[in-house]
Design a protein around this nucleic acid. Structure first.
Lengths: 182, 182
DNA sequence: GTGATAAGATACGGCATCGTTTCTTGAAGG
DNA sequence: CCTTCAAGAAACGATGCCGTATCTTATCAC
């Protein structure tokens, strides 16, 4: 489908040249179409990108097994790293990087893409175990629920690549579980 | 001094328009000088920005008191949040955001600005206490030494502002100290 | 006072993108 | 077969940045 090709081209172009250099001309080139076609449908590159992200494959949701906290946490964070390797994630990070310069775009991104998709990765797991009494609910603070994601992001920045399964396991063992009192 | 004004203008312009839109023309406008002056000294906007960052005020170094681990960790992270509020930090984040698109620039940034400045914030403190035997040295892994910084960055992203002293203290109490076995 | 140097202003041709307009091509539906 | 509508191609004037060249002005050293 034409629209699908344009969506993919928009995200790929965004990742390649960055939000600051993103233009209809470049997207049209990459999609092998004419920019007339783009202007007929979208008023700006920002709207086009938001549309592309809204149509992108949704993120998988962790399904806790309820009897192995450590494995469920690792699985949730591996889901996160898997998503981080998708083109959509690269596009999202290119947008979030420019939060200061385009606050409206970031806000629209949350409203149209993220908010309709519930909670974050480890939070889903942690709430599940807290409901079962296997984790002290008082330990679930705005800090502790972010440890896993925070370290995944930090390692991704420092290493220049997304953490692998062993590194994710180390995050769970060395940082997350201790903070839960385990 | 003229060069100083140009350096400040370069960083301010970078933060305002982003690395993708950064141009000599804009920097010259902001510094109230002529393009000619810039081209006489610097070959590209990237070199100019690197120069500006190398000249920027260096980051303060934590000085552990050696008898209060918690207070020293909080102080180290507060130093980090203080630095994050400087124009230089905003410029650095604008550059790191485009790591994928300008790897050479990021590499030069590390080589010319960061590497000459030793270790990170909490690491300095943690190594100090490990040397004194007050912290189990085996607990100092590539993961645990990054917990503080990782959560400061994550909170900064999620909140859209740099964490305050109470939030930093919560990071230390709820995540960092437990991971150290305390 | 004179000479040297850099700041600063202006203009240049070249080029790319902007958003729009016009026209051609092509495929589907009746 | 023929009509219709969107895709696609090409060109438009406008704008702005590129990097350079030219010329004037201001500030020093001597």
């Amino acid at each position: 489908m034409l629209v699908r090709a344009i969506h993919e081209a928009a995200l790929a172009e965004l990742v390649d040249v960055g939000l600051g250099q993103l233009g209809m001309e470049g997207i049209a080139r990459r999609a092998s179409t004419a920019k007339t076609v783009l202007y007929r449908r979208w008023a700006s590159t920002h709207e086009l990108v938001l549309d592309a992200l809204a149509q992108a494959h949704p993120v998988e949701v962790p399904t806790p097994a309820a009897n192995d906290l450590r494995a469920d946490l690792v699985a949730a964070l591996v889901l996160l790293t898997d998503w981080m390797r998708t083109p959509a994630a690269a596009a999202v990070s290119a947008i979030l990087a420019e939060r200061e310069r385009h606050p409206g775009l970031v806000e629209a991104l949350y409203r149209r893409v993220f908010d309709p998709r519930g909670a974050t990765f480890t939070t889903t797991v942690l709430r599940h175990y807290a409901d079962n009494g296997r984790v002290d609910a008082r330990r679930l603070t705005p800090i502790t629920t972010q440890i896993g994601e925070a370290l995944v992001f930090k390692l991704a920045i420092d290493l220049g690549r997304t953490p692998n399964a062993e590194e994710v396991a180390a995050i769970v063992d060395e940082a997350l579980l201790p903070a839960l009192g385990i």
